[in-house]
């Protein structure tokens, strides 16, 4: 049995002065990346705002077609996963490799849970024919209802893709953690994926009330 606390000593890349320099550069890079993500999703929120402004009654009708219980469940799942993610980073900071693995696994279970709930929601919408215009087959009162499902699938779909990417990143982290790459002096990838993951959570925090609750 290998020593769980043995770790591979991280080598600082040649063009950085020291580990702190490397970490801070990576973190600034990550924040700037999140800036691009804010504008990326933000533009969609502007599109949402336009449609909502243009067809307020349609949105009231449409939000009843989404199940708020599913949305709320997913909100709880993502919030919990953000907590486990941050605990995974913290565990690495205090050299608890086993705990890092456990928290990362918990985060991944949450991510899968989110996607499972999403799957059932999408399946129901597809079954009823509530889809973007070219595939829309449902009966409804508002003649603009397809616009709601256009933006709904666009926004939640893009968010879902981010969750899937997050699952891939967490898998990668688990593998590196198992190899003993992370310890109190080096946990940069954990921290960066953590920031990404919280951003995914952040987007959902706005998507949930805008689609499921506000009529």
């Amino acid at each position: 049995m290998t020593d769980l606390n043995a770790h591979k000593v991280h080598e600082v890349a040649h063009h950085f002065a020291n580990a702190g320099h490397e970490f801070d550069s990576a973190k600034l890079g990550m924040w700037v990346f999140l800036v691009t993500e804010v504008l990326f999703f933000g533009a969609l929120f502007v599109a949402y705002a336009f449609l909502r402004w243009a067809y307020p009654e349609m949105f009231v009708e449409a939000h009843h077609l989404l199940d708020w219980r599913m949305g709320a469940l997913n909100t709880l799942i993502l919030i919990t996963s953000s907590f486990t993610m941050v605990m995974a980073v913290r565990s690495a900071q205090v050299n608890q490799r086993g705990k890092t693995a456990a928290y990362l696994s918990a985060t991944m279970v949450c991510a899968f849970g989110f996607m499972v709930v999403k799957f059932f929601e999408y399946a129901a919408k597809i079954h009823h024919g509530y889809l973007p215009a070219k595939f829309f087959t449902a009966h409804a009162v508002s003649e603009h209802l397809h616009l709601f499902f256009g933006i709904y699938f666009m926004m939640t779909g893009l968010h879902g893709i981010h969750v899937v990417v997050g699952i891939g990143l967490i898998l990668w982290l688990l593998r590196r953690n198992a190899k003993g790459h992370f310890y109190s002096e080096f946990y940069t990838p954990l921290e960066m994926v953590g920031l990404y993951w919280h951003f995914v959570d952040l987007v959902w925090i706005f998507l949930f009330p805008l689609f499921y609750l506000v009529g």
């Binding site: 691009t36 993500e37 504008l39 990326f40 533009a43 449609l51 973007p132 215009a133 616009l147």
Partner: peptide, 23 residues
């Protein structure tokens, strides 16, 4: 700051052609 908005615009255009977002 600006390029992500182009990204989403072109993505919306692509999906518009494929599925008809309608926006």
């Amino acid at each position: 700051l600006a390029t992500p908005v182009l990204g989403i615009t072109l993505l919306l255009l692509i999906i518009e052609r494929v599925a008809g977002i309608g926006i």
